[in-house]
Write a protein that binds this DNA or RNA. Structure first.
Length: 305
DNA sequence: AGCGATACATCTGCAGAGCG
DNA sequence: CGCTCTGCAGATGTATCGCT
């Protein structure tokens, strides 16, 4: 029985399948299977997973053992944190950042992190917020920085630190005024005939917009799915379509002069820029806390400019 | 099609032997 | 004593199979 085998067992239990656990652990599926088999062998061959169903589910014994394993991993993490507190953290800090958010908020906080923790190597990956926060409890990443809206549900075993808010605005080319000709704000119904340039499905902001259209029983016209706000804004600047973007991203766009944020009465979306981390103490805690502080400062600064 | 298990190949780390 | 080589065990990857 060793820690790696316990980690594999817990990852499979939490991820809901051995396959997904292998992604979290950065192993292949056979390697994960064998770690779990090793662990099960310590129980005299009694199965911890019911493999007659796919993906495999925990048996009653497996559920019981899982609670013990979580306590073991927590204790080991506390021990590691204790051991590294004086020496300072070393190793690879895996940070997940929501698509589009990285360039906006992460540059100077990462610089500060590198200066304060020279022995920490950073691995930054981008994904949708929903996917990132799911990766935290299993340990696939050490922390996630995402744009969280009311629609997001956080898994158990994580802690969230709000570092700022971000207004998500509906954007069009500057040929359209920010309000209707009579000065009143636009309504979604006024924009129903327009073609929208949106992120592919999986984007939380797009999901919020689609729900708003659903509530009004209006069908949204998606002209194109485009990955990445920068390209979307560039296309919007040249077309008559509509899109969604964090306000800060619109402000820093090289096409800012050709773009307009619309005043829309029945669509207001505000997202919280949030750092999500594991509840279990980690040797990277001091680095993650610094990152959170720096993000807060960065967002306050860019609010003021 | 997706999932998990298994066979086989490859790589890595370690212990022990041999040699200068 | 220190270095190098060799053999072994364990961990992991690829390919593939059977099951649902």
């Amino acid at each position: 029985m060793n820690i790696q085998d316990i980690e594999a067992f817990v990852a499979a239990a939490e991820a809901g399948s051995i396959n997904r656990a292998s992604v979290r652990l950065n192993l292949t599926q056979p390697a994960t299977t064998r770690r779990i088999q090793n662990f099960e062998a310590a129980f005299g061959g009694d199965a911890l997973f019911d493999r007659s169903v796919k993906p495999a589910i925990l048996t009653a014994l497996g559920n019981h053992v899982l609670e013990h394993c979580r306590r073991v991993l927590t204790t080991v993490a506390e021990l590691e944190a204790c051991a590294t507190r004086s020496a300072g953290p070393t190793g690879e800090l895996r940070v997940g950042v929501a698509h589009g958010l990285g360039e906006m908020v992460l540059t100077s906080p990462l610089d500060a992190l590198r200066r304060s923790f020279p022995h920490v190597r950073m691995q930054v990956s981008a994904n949708w917020t929903t996917d990132l926060i799911e990766q935290v409890p299993g340990g696939a990443i050490d922390c996630a920085i995402g744009l969280i809206t009311d629609a997001h549900r956080l898994p158990g075993g994580v802690r969230r630190l709000s570092v700022g808010t971000e207004r998500i605005v509906i954007v069009s080319s500057s040929s359209r005024a920010s309000t209707k000709p009579d000065g009143s704000p636009w309504r979604l119904r006024d924009l129903a005939e327009e073609g929208w340039f949106l992120n592919p499905r999986g984007c939380g902001c797009r999901a919020a917009l689609e729900r708003a259209f659903d509530r009004h029983n209006i069908l949204i016209q998606v002209a194109a799915e485009i990955f990445g706000e920068d390209l979307q804004l560039s296309l919007l600047a040249q077309s008559g379509g509509l899109g969604l973007a964090p306000y800060r991203q619109l402000e820093r766009s090289p096409h800012r002069a050709e773009l307009r944020a619309l005043d829309v009465a029945d669509f207001q979306l505000s997202a919280t820029v949030t750092l999500v981390r594991n509840l279990v103490p980690s040797r990277f805690d001091p680095a993650i806390e610094l990152l959170a502080r720096q993000l807060k400062v960065k967002l306050q600064d860019s609010n003021g400019t």
